[in-house]
Write a protein that binds this DNA or RNA. Structure first.
Lengths: 255, 255
DNA sequence: AACCTATTTCCGCAGAGCGAAAAAGTAAGA
DNA sequence: TCTTACTTTTTCGCTCTGCGGAAATAGGTT
């Protein structure tokens, strides 16, 4: 966080740094671990975790002396979900596609340079990807991200792709992956990535829009059992059909 | 918030007061509205909303000069949902009960003196209650709350009911409603309330447990079209059957 | 252009929050 | 049981962060 912004309240940022640290962790964390991960002194972390506990956003297991997020955190997401008309429109399709394919099917929405999953219908296939509402990926390397970027109005697309490319460059990653995926999506209407954000996982996604809201109908798949060919053919077709009904007249092919 | 706690970081609490204010609002709010609702000076609110915007948790519509929560808020709920074994176990039942009844079916979990909805399968009935993940009700007057309270271990139940009764008393509400509902739930295993937290809405709920996690399988219903008798008979039976499978050998009747 | 309202920025100031150090808590090993 | 090592919490001196009133700016209406 930049110290140039005199109006940014530092202690608020610190509190959120801790919440975000816990949201990325695979298990509850102790104060010392949090302190190391967010690079703050242990006494400061102790006070911050105490405050977050009093406020109800984290709870502590006294026996383990570790902290984890509470269900209260779901509360802040409620109005986001409740107010999302697109979600109501897309929900039946999430269900039917998942039943038809056995795969996990999701609606993702854009959130700055991230793609956040708003609703997830868990697939019943043995190797269907396990995912939950609130999971978040970078636009840069996720199928949902690329699908949404390709569907932005030209002006905004230009701005957003520039920011994405700057981020990729800053991280020392390969620009060609993003560029190729975006190009292919613009040609076919469907974004497909494999093993970009996690080994063994890929995604097929198509942009959908309703009432001014843009999202991506997405199927995350296990690349070990779902071939690139199936992604490009069967799954892509399934998504195209659904998108055609969800956003009639909306032409996702802008390439 | 109590000023006796010297270790509570005030500006953190202020930030969350604003987020919670926005989570309760039915529409985006301007700075002045927020300032009035959280009882802070407008200049303080301006700086807080600016900070929350930079951190990504709210966004501003420049034309309306109003703020609303972003999808990033879903991120903090992700590990709560992803780590919930009970949810995986209950999910198929949410689906099948909703298909069978046409009603909205949910899994609620306890969160202090609140019941928070972790997953919601939206019903297709014309008057099925609309609800989303993250919705939150008081234990005191919700079916899910009462079901969970009745299933707590004796010692904890005693503590929690005392806190609930103190809250009810402090708010000047009628203790008899809570007492009667809890008593009935302990006798029948199913908690039923009508029009307690919102006119026109009621709930039927039963406690479920798996791997040490306690929750409530819940059906919120429109009281204008679903009679008390149907709640007590058909819906209650449906929930009992499901609970018997979800938590085999777990005896919710402790009365 | 004038007026009104809402919001943001500025800035003096004091106390809120910082972090190092001390104190307390906890677990493991002898 | 005692000792040691490690983790966490609390204390407290200090400074600079965040506060809020006032001034400036922004935006809409007449």
């Amino acid at each position: 966080m930049s110290r140039e912004d005199r109006q940014l309240i530092d202690s608020l940022a610190r509190g959120f740094a801790i919440l975000e640290c816990l949201s990325r962790a695979r298990r509850p964390l102790g104060n010392g671990e949090i302190a190391a991960l967010v690079d703050l002194p242990p006494s400061s972390v102790s006070r911050l975790t105490h405050s977050l506990t009093v406020l109800g956003y984290i709870r502590r297991s006294p026996s383990q002396r570790t902290y984890e997020l509470t269900p209260k955190n779901l509360m802040l997401g409620y109005p986001v979900l409740a107010g999302m008309s697109l979600l109501d429109r897309v929900r039946p399709y999430l269900k039917s596609i998942s039943e038809q394919t056995g795969e996990t099917v999701t609606l993702a929405v854009r959130d700055g340079l991230y793609s956040t999953f708003a609703e997830v219908v868990q697939g019943v296939n043995l190797v269907a990807v396990r995912l939950s509402t609130g999971a978040r990926l970078r636009l840069a390397n996720s199928a949902s991200g690329i699908a949404m970027v390709s569907a932005l109005p030209e002006k905004e697309k230009h701005t957003v792709t520039a920011r994405i490319r700057a981020e990729i460059t800053r991280r020392g990653e390969d620009l060609a992956v993003f560029n190729n995926s975006l190009e292919e999506c613009e040609a076919t209407g469907v974004a497909i990535v494999r093993n970009t954000w996690q080994k063994g996982i890929g995604g097929v996604a198509i942009a959908v829009q309703a009432q001014g809201e843009l999202g991506a109908l997405t199927m995350p798949v296990a690349t070990g059992s779902v071939s690139a060919e199936v992604m490009h053919t069967t799954l892509a077709s399934t998504l195209r059909e659904a998108a055609e009904t969800i956003s009639p007249g909306y032409e996702p092919q802008t390439g």
